[in-house]
């Protein structure tokens, strides 16, 4: 990993990119003018040849925590597995892998999403931020700092998901009340049950204004 801006790792013996052609040749019906009209731009495009990606590995570049990372992955790989297994980004955790626990939460263009429930290919061109981004310039972000101060974790496996969800909630509304911050954490679960300490962290953060 000499150059962090251009990290790559070879995938499991994948060298070929398949181009499958889909037949998008369907004539568009003449545009009636509904009020209001969505999609007129898309509909105006009469035919489109859609190039398929995969099922073998395809080259992909993702923007993760400020770095551009390239690799070759199969289209079925989720964003979570792409980050952890192909891009050496392990801040997001794989727990339920079914979009219910929140440990895999990352920020996609600033909004928290479950990286286990989206394809890596869907994240192309978007800014991905994991919990590792909350440690810029060697200075700990106030959210994880509050977790440390309140001892708001036990095993710590859910923590990377909680801190990014909390960061997003406070970024969206820096004046959020503790109840509003808690609502922003509705999609995250801590199985150790450290919620009480998290409440202390939230209270301290809300007093400081995020």
């Amino acid at each position: 990993m000499s150059d962090p801006q251009q990290r790559t790792r070879n995938g499991p013996g994948v060298t070929r990119r398949d181009f499958l052609r889909g037949s998008g040749a369907v004539a568009t019906a003449a545009l009636t003018t509904p009020v209001p009209s969505l999609l007129h731009e898309a509909a105006a495009q009469k035919t489109e040849e859609v190039v398929g990606l995969g099922p073998k590995g395809v080259p992909i570049e993702l923007s993760v925590d400020g770095a551009k990372i390239k690799n070759t992955i199969e289209p079925r790989i989720t964003l979570l597995d792409a980050l952890r297994d192909y891009m050496d980004t392990t801040a997001c955790k794989r727990v339920c892998d079914r979009g219910t626990c929140g440990a895999c939460t990352v920020l996609l263009d600033g909004k928290p999403v479950y990286s286990c429930s989206m394809l890596a290919l869907e994240a192309r061109g978007k800014e991905i931020k994991t919990a590792a981004s909350l440690h810029g310039d060697g200075k700990l972000d106030p959210v994880p700092a509050a977790f440390v101060a309140a001892d708001a974790q036990q095993c710590g496996f859910c923590t990377p998901g909680f801190v990014v969800s909390m960061r997003a909630t406070l970024d969206k509304n820096p004046k959020a009340t503790p109840a509003e911050v808690e609502a922003g954490l509705a999609g995250n679960i801590c199985r150790c049950g450290t919620y009480e300490q998290m409440r202390h962290a939230i209270e301290a953060l809300c007093k400081k204004g995020g």
Partner: peptide, 13 residues
């Protein structure tokens, strides 16, 4: 495994 498509138009889809 599957092939992934991201058409730019509804007709393409």
């Amino acid at each position: 495994e599957f092939t992934y498509y991201q058409p730019k138009s509804v007709d393409g889809a």
